[in-house]
Design a binder for these strands. Structure first.
Lengths: 243, 243
DNA sequence: AAAATAGTGTCTATAAGACATTATGTC
DNA sequence: GACATAATGTCTTATAGACACTATTTT
């Protein structure tokens, strides 16, 4: 690119006239499986932090929007279907030395994915994680049993979890972690797993059903030697602010 | 900077090997004056958007943390004293064409400043806004009476206001918009101005005094031909989550 | 005493939380 | 009928909101 007239630039800087930081996006992909909150990590094959696990990410190309870059990364690493996943910007991490080699500012996103196929009817198909160029492996981890993470990725993950815990309280984000149809017990499990505490079943159901965000499908799920559960769906498949 | 070995870089990119975006910080500085929420804007003297008003900002130098860059910008533009101002990251705006010349990703922050000197005792001294290199003027504007803004700055400002409105509901951020000592009426004015609606005086006081975030100083403020008001201070000068 | 702002209490409605038993299906 | 999960209601306490008058100071 040609150097351009510095006087045309805001506040007297010519962004091409001197070195400036690189920008990456990192995507914290979360899902719930087996009553645990799981995060998708990739194992690094290169320095720095070789063999460490890391949140998947990559540099932002000149001609790609931030949001688009994050969504592309997410799709590259997960077999997430064509439906629009829940993907939201989290925070931008920009300490000078967060990458030991170079100045890299990373815009972190977090994604919520429905629980991968558990053999249940209605379970969404979430493909296996996909290792990439400089990642030798990709794998889901219980956030309570993490390996050491590269860079400041432990901090990024913690911010994502805290954000999710907060949002659960005043929005219907939980929709993104469930299949289209689900039982109230499954919904309660989502809340309990993320908040890391048990909830009273009667109060939970009373509350959820009073909010006009769920509707019964009329169908039920029969699984074992016990009473079948009603299946519900969301009235809106998008996050909604709750009263 | 020397080109470095691409294999040392995450996910196979060498950030120096190709053009990449510039990064700026923009700081939405807000204060309350005369029952209006005011934002600090600078008038551009250069293209693009010459003579348009804009949120103050600048490029992030290689050797400066994001937070530090934002705080420096804030101090450059305002006469904010040595005390730590409320300054928090807001959101990162990264659409490819948000700057017509070049790819600029901006990390937006918002700052809350105590009301500038109104002649009252205890009023903090907030110096006059300071125009900078490529800004011919700097001025506080009522957010309800804005001139056309450069770039996507109207959107950035709207995100800041929405964030502030939300935070007011579940934290004690209001502390940052008042002097050390203040009356309950002043505090109520902060809430009413930001939320853009009136609140019931009795309910407001009852709520605030029940939260254990305020303490009476014992002093009072006498201003006109009417009963003087008690002065309060915050028990903690930092944002606190409310029940 | 007029003017102006500070300061106060009750009642109602709604929401949150504690708590235990019955219902319905499979095997 | 044994087993396993689904489903349900009451009471208590805390919170939010509507609502109007008295208190204190200066001029």
């Amino acid at each position: 690119m040609d150097k351009i007239d510095a006087t045309e630039l805001p506040d007297g800087y010519d962004p091409r006239a001197f070195d400036h930081p690189s920008v990456s996006v990192d995507v914290v992909a979360l899902t719930i499986r087996d009553r645990s909150l799981q995060v998708l990590l990739v194992q690094r094959s290169e320095k720095p932090y070789p063999s460490y696990w890391a949140i998947p990410g990559g540099f932002v190309p000149m001609q790609e929007d931030l949001d688009t870059a994050a969504e592309r990364k997410l799709r590259e690493k997960t077999g997430v279907g064509e439906a629009a996943p829940f993907l939201e910007q989290l925070y931008t991490f920009g300490k000078v030395n967060r990458d030991p080699r170079d100045r890299v500012i990373t815009v972190a996103y977090y994604a919520l994915l429905p629980a991968p196929d558990s053999g249940l009817p209605n379970a969404p198909s979430l493909g296996a994680p996909i290792a990439g160029a400089n990642a030798s492996d990709a794998q889901w981890f219980d956030v309570k049993e993490l390996p050491p993470l590269a860079f400041d990725h432990a901090e990024i993950l913690q911010v994502a979890i805290t954000r999710l815990q907060g949002k659960l309280g005043y929005t219907s984000v939980a929709y993104a972690l469930l299949a289209d149809e689900f039982t109230l017990t499954e919904l309660q499990t989502v809340y309990e797993t993320i908040l890391d505490r048990t909830l009273d079943k009667r109060n939970f159901r009373k509350k959820m059903l009073s909010l006009d965000i769920l509707e019964a499908t009329g169908k039920e799920r029969r699984l074992g030697a016990h009473r079948p559960a009603q299946l519900f769906r969301w009235t809106k498949r998008e996050p909604v602010f709750l009263p």
